[in-house]
Amino acid sequence: MAPAYQNREVAALTSLQSWEFLAVLAYGDGVERVAVEIESRESNVGEARRFVRRQLAFWGLPEDDGLVDRVLLVISELVTNAVVHGRTRPSEETESVGVTLAFRRGFALGVMVTDNSGDIPKVRIRPSAFADCGRGLVLVNAESDAWTAAPRSGQQGVDGKAVWAFFQCPQPAALSELMPQPV
């Protein structure tokens, strides 16, 4: 049986709100960050997934506990939403989607996807079983530990939005554990 203090820690961590994750991952000490911009095209969703998968492996997050699969599903949904619903320019013009990861070991991983639309996404309460769309944020809500969205503002006012999803993280494996061992 686990010591009682571990149970309280888990209970406290699972009750965190999105703003608490955001405060630590956006402004806290000891947070590792990496970002990439991809062209806003549906064919580039896979590029975002590959970027995230490589970075999670670099940070030592184990694929066998389901966390990596959850993160990849969420990043696929958020980037797809940004490409499909977040474009503000005609399709013949180039536009980018930003993907940022913020990781604090032993605490949490945050993924942020930015686009140029100021429209804040809303979860559809009951998407139709026959609908071609409308399930993305339902999946994000189900697979992440918390998520939030907010307008991004620059010198000329609103420049789009950022959508964050947060995942509690176990302590990653030591690098030596990830290296191939001699037979």
Rank of each mutant, 00 (worst) to 15 (best):
I125K: 12
A108F: 12
G134P: 09
D115Y: 01
R124S: 06
V123L: 12
I125T: 11
A108N: 12
D115N: 15
V113L: 04
V138S: 15
G98T: 07
D115L: 03
I120V: 14
R105F: 09
R104D: 04
L137N: 00
L109W: 09
V111D: 04
A131K: 09
G134V: 09
C133M: 13
A102D: 06
V123H: 02
D115M: 03
T100S: 04
A102N: 13
F130D: 12
L109T: 06
P121M: 08
K122A: 11
P121D: 02
N116P: 00
I120Q: 09
L139I: 11
K122W: 01
A108P: 05
F130I: 13
S117T: 06
I120R: 09
A131M: 10
G136S: 05
K122T: 10
C133E: 15
P121R: 01
V113E: 07
A102I: 02
V97W: 08
L101I: 03
F107K: 07
R124T: 12
A131I: 11
D119H: 08
F107S: 10
A129R: 11
A102V: 03
D132S: 14
P121K: 00
S128A: 14
G98P: 02
S117F: 00
R124M: 06
V99M: 01
R135Y: 12
T114D: 13
N116G: 09
L101A: 13
F107I: 10
K122F: 01
L109Q: 13
N116M: 08
D119M: 08
L109H: 02
S128V: 02
I120K: 08
A131R: 09
G134L: 06
R104C: 10
S117N: 04
T100A: 05
G106W: 11
C133Y: 14
M112Y: 13
A108H: 09
V113I: 15
R124V: 15
K122G: 05
V99G: 07
L137G: 00
P127M: 10
A102H: 08
V113A: 06
